[in-house]
Design a binder for these strands. Structure first.
Lengths: 137, 137
DNA sequence: GTAGCAAAACTACCGTGGTAGTATTACCGC
DNA sequence: GCGGTAATACTACCACGGTAGTTTTGCTAC
Protein backbone atom coordinates (compact mmCIF):
# COMPACT_ATOMS: atom_id res chain seq x y z
CA UNK A 1 0.00 0.00 0.00
CA UNK A 2 1.71 3.16 -1.22
CA UNK A 3 5.41 3.54 -0.57
CA UNK A 4 7.00 1.93 2.46
CA UNK A 5 9.97 4.24 2.46
CA UNK A 6 8.90 6.71 5.08
CA UNK A 7 12.22 8.49 4.94
CA UNK A 8 10.73 11.11 2.71
CA UNK A 9 7.40 11.79 4.30
CA UNK A 10 8.18 15.17 5.74
CA UNK A 11 5.69 17.30 7.59
CA UNK A 12 5.18 20.96 6.81
CA UNK A 13 7.62 22.31 9.33
CA UNK A 14 10.22 19.70 8.56
CA UNK A 15 10.07 20.54 4.88
CA UNK A 16 10.37 24.25 5.57
CA UNK A 17 13.40 23.62 7.73
CA UNK A 18 14.99 21.43 5.08
CA UNK A 19 14.42 24.16 2.52
CA UNK A 20 16.30 26.60 4.70
CA UNK A 21 19.18 24.18 5.10
CA UNK A 22 19.30 23.44 1.39
CA UNK A 23 19.34 27.13 0.65
CA UNK A 24 22.01 28.05 3.17
CA UNK A 25 24.04 24.87 3.01
CA UNK A 26 24.28 24.77 6.78
CA UNK A 27 22.79 26.85 9.54
CA UNK A 28 22.48 27.28 13.27
CA UNK A 29 19.16 27.09 15.07
CA UNK A 30 19.14 30.87 15.17
CA UNK A 31 19.61 31.04 11.41
CA UNK A 32 16.81 28.59 10.72
CA UNK A 33 14.53 30.28 13.19
CA UNK A 34 14.93 33.70 11.66
CA UNK A 35 14.51 32.36 8.12
CA UNK A 36 11.10 31.00 9.06
CA UNK A 37 9.30 34.28 8.64
CA UNK A 38 5.92 32.69 7.97
CA UNK A 39 4.28 31.56 11.17
CA UNK A 40 6.14 32.86 14.17
CA UNK A 41 7.50 29.90 16.09
CA UNK A 42 9.21 29.68 19.43
CA UNK A 43 12.93 29.27 19.20
CA UNK A 44 12.72 26.03 21.14
CA UNK A 45 10.21 24.64 18.67
CA UNK A 46 12.74 24.90 15.91
CA UNK A 47 15.47 23.47 18.12
CA UNK A 48 13.28 20.53 19.13
CA UNK A 49 12.32 19.84 15.56
CA UNK A 50 15.91 19.87 14.45
CA UNK A 51 16.77 17.38 17.15
CA UNK A 52 13.92 15.11 16.08
CA UNK A 53 15.04 15.42 12.50
CA UNK A 54 18.53 14.46 13.55
CA UNK A 55 17.12 11.30 15.13
CA UNK A 56 15.49 10.53 11.80
CA UNK A 57 18.78 11.11 9.95
CA UNK A 58 17.43 14.00 7.96
CA UNK A 59 20.03 16.41 9.29
CA UNK A 60 23.22 16.29 11.32
CA UNK A 61 25.18 18.79 13.30
CA UNK A 62 28.87 19.25 13.53
CA UNK A 63 30.46 18.82 16.90
CA UNK A 64 30.75 22.24 18.48
CA UNK A 65 34.35 22.94 17.67
CA UNK A 66 35.42 25.81 19.88
CA UNK A 67 35.95 28.20 17.03
CA UNK A 68 35.03 31.24 19.03
CA UNK A 69 31.28 31.58 18.72
CA UNK A 70 30.10 29.64 21.75
CA UNK A 71 28.91 26.10 21.28
CA UNK A 72 26.22 26.77 18.68
CA UNK A 73 25.39 23.67 16.66
CA UNK A 74 25.70 24.01 12.94
CA UNK A 75 23.14 21.81 11.21
CA UNK A 76 23.45 20.53 7.70
CA UNK A 77 21.14 18.44 5.55
CA UNK A 78 21.80 14.73 5.23
CA UNK A 79 19.34 14.26 2.40
CA UNK A 80 19.31 16.18 -0.83
CA UNK A 81 16.46 18.29 -2.10
CA UNK A 82 16.43 16.12 -5.19
CA UNK A 83 15.92 12.96 -3.19
CA UNK A 84 13.24 14.39 -0.97
CA UNK A 85 11.37 15.94 -3.85
CA UNK A 86 11.59 12.74 -5.83
CA UNK A 87 10.49 10.73 -2.82
CA UNK A 88 7.51 12.87 -1.99
CA UNK A 89 6.40 13.41 -5.57
CA UNK A 90 6.86 9.74 -6.40
CA UNK A 91 4.95 8.74 -3.32
CA UNK A 92 2.02 10.86 -4.37
CA UNK A 93 2.07 9.69 -7.97
CA UNK A 94 1.96 6.11 -6.70
CA UNK A 95 -0.69 6.74 -4.12
CA UNK A 96 -3.05 8.75 -6.25
CA UNK A 97 -2.30 7.86 -9.83
CA UNK A 98 -0.99 4.30 -9.63
CA UNK A 99 2.36 5.49 -10.87
CA UNK A 100 1.11 6.88 -14.14
CA UNK A 101 2.70 10.12 -15.24
CA UNK A 102 0.03 10.58 -17.87
CA UNK A 103 -2.74 10.37 -15.28
CA UNK A 104 -0.89 12.81 -13.10
CA UNK A 105 -0.38 15.37 -15.82
CA UNK A 106 -3.91 14.87 -17.02
CA UNK A 107 -5.25 15.65 -13.58
CA UNK A 108 -3.03 18.70 -13.15
CA UNK A 109 -4.09 20.09 -16.51
CA UNK A 110 -7.75 19.51 -15.81
CA UNK A 111 -7.96 20.73 -12.27
CA UNK A 112 -5.61 23.65 -12.08
CA UNK A 113 -5.81 26.98 -13.78
CA UNK A 114 -2.92 26.71 -16.17
CA UNK A 115 -1.89 29.91 -17.85
CA UNK A 116 -1.04 29.87 -21.55
CA UNK A 117 2.51 30.80 -20.67
CA UNK A 118 2.81 27.92 -18.30
CA UNK A 119 1.38 25.53 -20.84
CA UNK A 120 3.91 26.72 -23.38
CA UNK A 121 6.65 26.19 -20.84
CA UNK A 122 5.50 22.65 -20.26
CA UNK A 123 5.54 21.98 -23.98
CA UNK A 124 9.01 23.36 -24.19
CA UNK A 125 10.10 21.08 -21.37
CA UNK A 126 8.73 18.07 -23.16
CA UNK A 127 10.45 18.95 -26.41
CA UNK A 128 13.66 19.43 -24.53
CA UNK A 129 13.23 16.17 -22.72
CA UNK A 130 12.72 14.32 -25.98
CA UNK A 131 15.84 15.86 -27.41
CA UNK A 132 17.76 14.69 -24.35
CA UNK A 133 16.35 11.22 -24.77
CA UNK A 134 17.29 11.06 -28.42
CA UNK A 135 20.83 12.17 -27.74
CA UNK A 136 21.25 9.63 -24.99
CA UNK A 137 20.23 6.82 -27.27
CA UNK B 1 2.99 27.41 5.17
CA UNK B 2 1.58 25.01 2.62
CA UNK B 3 -2.16 24.52 2.50
CA UNK B 4 -4.25 25.03 5.60
CA UNK B 5 -7.12 22.93 4.37
CA UNK B 6 -6.37 19.70 6.13
CA UNK B 7 -9.59 18.13 4.92
CA UNK B 8 -7.73 16.36 2.19
CA UNK B 9 -4.67 15.11 3.96
CA UNK B 10 -5.55 11.46 4.03
CA UNK B 11 -3.30 8.75 5.39
CA UNK B 12 -2.56 5.57 3.51
CA UNK B 13 -5.32 3.49 4.97
CA UNK B 14 -7.85 6.26 4.73
CA UNK B 15 -7.09 6.75 1.07
CA UNK B 16 -7.35 3.04 0.37
CA UNK B 17 -10.71 2.95 2.09
CA UNK B 18 -11.94 5.96 0.14
CA UNK B 19 -10.85 4.28 -3.08
CA UNK B 20 -12.98 1.27 -2.25
CA UNK B 21 -15.96 3.46 -1.48
CA UNK B 22 -15.51 5.47 -4.67
CA UNK B 23 -15.30 2.27 -6.66
CA UNK B 24 -18.29 0.57 -5.09
CA UNK B 25 -20.39 3.64 -4.46
CA UNK B 26 -21.21 2.43 -0.99
CA UNK B 27 -20.12 -0.50 1.08
CA UNK B 28 -20.39 -2.22 4.43
CA UNK B 29 -17.41 -2.76 6.70
CA UNK B 30 -17.28 -6.33 5.46
CA UNK B 31 -17.12 -5.15 1.87
CA UNK B 32 -14.34 -2.68 2.55
CA UNK B 33 -12.43 -5.18 4.61
CA UNK B 34 -12.42 -7.84 1.95
CA UNK B 35 -11.50 -5.37 -0.78
CA UNK B 36 -8.35 -4.46 1.13
CA UNK B 37 -6.37 -7.43 -0.08
CA UNK B 38 -3.00 -5.78 0.41
CA UNK B 39 -1.93 -5.89 4.03
CA UNK B 40 -4.22 -8.11 6.06
CA UNK B 41 -5.98 -5.95 8.62
CA UNK B 42 -8.19 -6.90 11.50
CA UNK B 43 -11.84 -6.36 10.79
CA UNK B 44 -12.10 -4.01 13.75
CA UNK B 45 -9.27 -1.90 12.39
CA UNK B 46 -11.30 -1.13 9.31
CA UNK B 47 -14.42 -0.49 11.38
CA UNK B 48 -12.55 1.85 13.70
CA UNK B 49 -11.03 3.73 10.81
CA UNK B 50 -14.40 4.17 9.18
CA UNK B 51 -15.78 5.59 12.39
CA UNK B 52 -12.90 8.02 12.67
CA UNK B 53 -13.41 9.01 9.07
CA UNK B 54 -17.05 9.62 9.79
CA UNK B 55 -16.02 12.01 12.57
CA UNK B 56 -13.91 13.85 10.03
CA UNK B 57 -16.83 14.01 7.60
CA UNK B 58 -15.08 11.97 4.97
CA UNK B 59 -17.76 9.31 4.94
CA UNK B 60 -21.25 8.78 6.33
CA UNK B 61 -23.38 5.77 6.98
CA UNK B 62 -27.05 5.34 6.41
CA UNK B 63 -29.18 4.60 9.41
CA UNK B 64 -29.60 0.85 9.60
CA UNK B 65 -33.01 0.55 8.03
CA UNK B 66 -34.30 -2.91 8.84
CA UNK B 67 -34.22 -4.13 5.28
CA UNK B 68 -33.51 -7.68 6.21
CA UNK B 69 -29.73 -7.97 6.46
CA UNK B 70 -29.13 -7.26 10.12
CA UNK B 71 -28.06 -3.82 11.17
CA UNK B 72 -25.00 -3.57 8.97
CA UNK B 73 -23.96 0.02 8.34
CA UNK B 74 -23.65 1.02 4.74
CA UNK B 75 -20.96 3.63 4.34
CA UNK B 76 -20.72 6.06 1.47
CA UNK B 77 -18.18 8.73 0.60
CA UNK B 78 -18.92 12.33 1.49
CA UNK B 79 -16.06 13.71 -0.56
CA UNK B 80 -15.44 13.04 -4.21
CA UNK B 81 -12.36 11.44 -5.65
CA UNK B 82 -11.91 14.55 -7.75
CA UNK B 83 -11.83 16.82 -4.73
CA UNK B 84 -9.50 14.64 -2.73
CA UNK B 85 -7.14 14.13 -5.64
CA UNK B 86 -7.15 17.82 -6.40
CA UNK B 87 -6.59 18.64 -2.75
CA UNK B 88 -3.71 16.27 -2.27
CA UNK B 89 -2.05 16.97 -5.59
CA UNK B 90 -2.49 20.70 -5.18
CA UNK B 91 -1.10 20.54 -1.70
CA UNK B 92 2.02 18.83 -2.94
CA UNK B 93 2.50 21.16 -5.88
CA UNK B 94 2.32 24.08 -3.49
CA UNK B 95 4.56 22.55 -0.89
CA UNK B 96 7.28 21.31 -3.21
CA UNK B 97 7.05 23.40 -6.34
CA UNK B 98 5.64 26.70 -5.14
CA UNK B 99 2.55 26.10 -7.21
CA UNK B 100 4.32 25.87 -10.51
CA UNK B 101 2.99 23.24 -12.90
CA UNK B 102 6.06 23.63 -15.07
CA UNK B 103 8.39 22.89 -12.17
CA UNK B 104 6.29 19.90 -11.28
CA UNK B 105 6.28 18.43 -14.75
CA UNK B 106 9.94 19.21 -15.17
CA UNK B 107 10.74 17.28 -12.03
CA UNK B 108 8.58 14.33 -13.01
CA UNK B 109 10.17 14.11 -16.43
CA UNK B 110 13.67 14.31 -15.03
CA UNK B 111 13.35 11.97 -12.13
CA UNK B 112 11.09 9.22 -13.30
CA UNK B 113 11.63 6.65 -15.98
CA UNK B 114 9.13 7.79 -18.54
CA UNK B 115 8.46 5.40 -21.36
CA UNK B 116 8.18 6.69 -24.89
CA UNK B 117 4.56 5.62 -24.95
CA UNK B 118 3.81 7.53 -21.80
CA UNK B 119 5.56 10.59 -23.13
CA UNK B 120 3.49 10.43 -26.27
CA UNK B 121 0.37 10.13 -24.17
CA UNK B 122 1.32 13.22 -22.24
CA UNK B 123 1.84 15.11 -25.48
CA UNK B 124 -1.55 13.98 -26.68
CA UNK B 125 -3.12 15.19 -23.44
CA UNK B 126 -1.57 18.60 -23.87
CA UNK B 127 -2.75 18.94 -27.46
CA UNK B 128 -6.19 17.90 -26.36
CA UNK B 129 -6.13 20.34 -23.50
CA UNK B 130 -5.18 23.18 -25.84
CA UNK B 131 -8.01 22.31 -28.17
CA UNK B 132 -10.39 22.42 -25.23
CA UNK B 133 -9.05 25.78 -24.22
CA UNK B 134 -9.42 27.18 -27.70
CA UNK B 135 -12.97 26.00 -28.00
CA UNK B 136 -13.89 27.51 -24.66
CA UNK B 137 -12.57 30.89 -25.65
C1' DG C 1 37.35 31.28 39.30
C1' DT C 2 32.89 32.66 39.10
C1' DA C 3 28.61 34.92 37.42
C1' DG C 4 25.75 35.51 33.78
C1' DC C 5 23.93 34.37 29.62
C1' DA C 6 22.95 31.74 25.68
C1' DA C 7 22.35 27.38 23.86
C1' DA C 8 21.04 22.68 24.10
C1' DA C 9 18.60 18.94 26.61
C1' DC C 10 14.76 17.30 28.77
C1' DT C 11 10.01 16.98 29.48
C1' DA C 12 5.38 17.49 28.44
C1' DC C 13 1.27 17.90 25.89
C1' DC C 14 -2.09 17.72 21.90
C1' DG C 15 -3.96 15.80 17.57
C1' DT C 16 -4.25 12.20 14.37
C1' DG C 17 -3.33 7.96 11.81
C1' DG C 18 -3.02 3.26 12.51
C1' DT C 19 -3.92 -1.03 14.88
C1' DA C 20 -6.64 -4.08 17.44
C1' DG C 21 -8.74 -6.36 21.71
C1' DT C 22 -12.83 -6.35 24.65
C1' DA C 23 -17.49 -5.07 25.67
C1' DT C 24 -22.02 -4.16 24.31
C1' DT C 25 -25.92 -4.21 21.40
C1' DA C 26 -29.27 -5.56 18.13
C1' DC C 27 -31.19 -8.65 15.05
C1' DC C 28 -32.96 -13.35 13.64
C1' DG C 29 -34.34 -17.85 14.03
C1' DC C 30 -36.42 -20.99 16.78
C1' DG D 1 -39.22 -14.45 24.40
C1' DC D 2 -34.64 -16.10 24.35
C1' DG D 3 -30.18 -17.49 22.88
C1' DG D 4 -26.62 -17.11 19.65
C1' DT D 5 -24.21 -14.59 16.52
C1' DA D 6 -22.66 -10.82 14.04
C1' DA D 7 -22.05 -6.17 14.05
C1' DT D 8 -20.97 -1.86 16.29
C1' DA D 9 -19.03 0.80 20.29
C1' DC D 10 -15.66 1.51 23.58
C1' DT D 11 -11.09 1.57 25.07
C1' DA D 12 -6.33 1.39 24.69
C1' DC D 13 -1.90 1.79 22.77
C1' DC D 14 1.97 3.35 19.74
C1' DA D 15 4.34 6.56 16.60
C1' DC D 16 5.05 10.95 14.96
C1' DG D 17 4.51 15.84 13.84
C1' DG D 18 4.10 20.02 16.02
C1' DT D 19 4.52 23.22 19.83
C1' DA D 20 6.75 25.10 23.69
C1' DG D 21 8.09 25.56 28.79
C1' DT D 22 11.67 24.30 32.15
C1' DT D 23 16.12 22.65 33.34
C1' DT D 24 20.82 21.91 32.62
C1' DT D 25 25.12 22.87 30.59
C1' DG D 26 28.93 25.16 28.80
C1' DC D 27 31.24 29.18 27.17
C1' DT D 28 33.02 33.93 27.98
C1' DA D 29 33.91 37.97 30.03
C1' DC D 30 35.17 39.96 34.02
Amino acid sequence: MASDDRTYRLGDLQLEIMKVLWRLGSATVVDVHEQLVGEPLAYTTVATMLRKMEDRRLVAHDAPSGDGQGRRFVYRPLVSERDVTRGMAGDLVERLFEGSLASTVSHLLEERDVSAAELAEVERLIREHKRGRAKRR
